[in-house]
Simulated assay, not measured.
Amino acid sequence: MKQTTNSILMIRPVAFRMNEQTAVNNYYQKVLDGLLPATVNAKAQQEFDVFVEKLRAVGVDVTVVDDKEGSDTPDSIFPNNWISFHENGDVALYPMFAENRRLERREDILDTLEDKGFIIDNIMDYTSAEEDGFFLEGTGSLLLDRENGKAYCALSPRADEELFIEFCEDFEFTPVIFEAFHTVNKERKLIYHTNVMMCIGETFAVVCADCIDDKKERKMVLESLKGDEKEVVLITEDQLNNFAGNMLEVKGTDDRRYLVMSDSAYKSLTKKQIAQLEEHVTILSSNLDTIEACGGGSARCMMAEIFLPRE
């Protein structure tokens, strides 16, 4: 299986704001004081549009679907949490922690992709786990090393171990399970999504190893990556707080490799880290300040990779 794709799905927001339902365990979210909701949404739309433009300019095939007016879906801009698309024609639908995020799942989006020539053979639906209070939020919770058949998961209230193992059995991935923490008000709290602290590219990985407090687990994760001949670029917790872990490698024109991140992530990197990454990829960054502040997610969360076969 290939690790990266040229095709991504992105959802343009219509009612973006800080989602109070996710803020209980996403400590990156903030209310922007003095800004009306309409202003916040307009700023997010502007950031979104510029971001899409930059991706398309380098040849990334971006399918943009507008969120639905009147739906209470403030986090719809982050589709990678509720859906994933796989090379064998499978689509996975995931159980979401926040009730209003469950409203983001839309069948018409699958119709849109089929209209574009993508082939969907089978839907793996894990959403019934919501009824029992178990969650696994897509490629936010799961970090897939497709080429090496491994799936990395930092357990959290939004990433259930048994569900993760079920996914790995269904999709034939070897599970790599650990816990990752960050400091919030001087307390170590579980990081809500794996893709905040880690990114896996074709030939490299970006990891905040300092988040993996258990030394055995930390060693296991790093050895797993290095054993697959990934160059590991370590980031600090401060860089993680600037969304430096929330990156995604995509393909542009002529299969050129790009590492996509926010401006804040890029600015937090050292010259040495940038040089390390540029040995592998061309860096593409965009200003996502409003989206990061209110949504508590960044560039990677906004892109759902499409690996589906095409007609």
Rank of each mutant, 00 (worst) to 15 (best):
P79F: 10
S156H: 02
N246E: 05
E187T: 13
E237Y: 01
V50S: 09
C294N: 15
D111A: 06
G297D: 11
M96P: 12
M302K: 01
E179T: 12
Y152Q: 04
P37A: 02
E202K: 15
A205Y: 05
S268C: 04
W82H: 15
V65Q: 07
D115S: 13
V65G: 07
V250Q: 07
S268E: 04
V64S: 06
L36F: 01
V196T: 12
T112K: 15
L136H: 05
E223V: 00
Q239D: 03
Q46S: 15
H280F: 13
V60K: 04
I120V: 14
V50F: 07
I11Y: 03
E69R: 10
T63S: 12
T39K: 14
A38L: 06
V31L: 11
R310H: 03
Y28D: 03
M198G: 06
F78P: 02
Y28L: 09
Y27R: 02
T203H: 15
Q3E: 14
G297H: 08
G89N: 01
L308Y: 02
N80G: 05
L35A: 10
K251P: 01
I120R: 00
M124Y: 10
V260M: 06
E162Y: 08
E217W: 03
K2Q: 12
E229A: 04
G149K: 12
M1S: 14
F181D: 04
Y27I: 01
S286H: 04
D90E: 06
D121I: 06
D214Q: 03
W82F: 11
F78Y: 14
G201M: 09
T63K: 13
I274C: 01
F85R: 05
D61R: 06
A265G: 11
S224K: 04
C301Y: 07
L55P: 07
E104Q: 09
K251N: 11
E169L: 08
F118H: 06
E53D: 14
Y27G: 04
K2R: 14
D213C: 08
M198N: 01
T112E: 14
A209P: 08
F178W: 07
T22R: 04
N26W: 01
R188W: 02
A42W: 01
D145M: 06
G34W: 11
Q276M: 12
L225M: 06
Q3P: 11
E130T: 10
A57R: 09
A23K: 14
C294W: 02
T194F: 08
V233S: 01
E114R: 15
